[in-house]
């Protein structure tokens, strides 16, 4: 994987968290991460867990909340395996919690 794993220091740019409900199969992470990577849009942090019976997963992406984000959102919504996208302004407590592990 490419930019999904890179963490940059662009701390001045405000952050947003995208919460995606996706179909759970082996290619879905490639679809989501590949979309951001090939449009040169950095993903700062990512988390993914299966939901309920495992047919769906939930993905959280921490991204820069810049003026390209609305276009990225429209592109994400077009992915066949993405069932819903919720935008959260700012950082998500999920990632603040995860940060504990890399301290």
């Amino acid at each position: 994987m490419t930019s999904c794993e890179t963490v940059t220091k662009d701390i001045d740019i405000p952050k947003a968290t995208l919460e995606l409900s996706v179909r759970n199969h082996p290619g879905v992470m490639s679809h989501v991460c590949g979309l951001f990577a090939r449009r040169a849009f950095n993903v700062d942090a990512i988390a993914c867990v299966p939901e309920g019976d495992g047919r769906q997963s939930r993905i959280w992406l921490m991204v820069s909340d810049d003026d390209r984000l609305p276009q990225m959102l429209r592109q994400v919504e077009k992915l066949e395996d993405v069932l819903a996208v919720v935008y959260h302004g700012g950082e998500h407590p999920l990632f603040t919690g995860l940060a504990e592990y890399v301290r």
Binding site: P70, Q75, K78
Partner: peptide
Amino acid sequence: IDPSELDK
């Protein structure tokens, strides 16, 4: 017909 083309 493609929403992502608007405002791109």
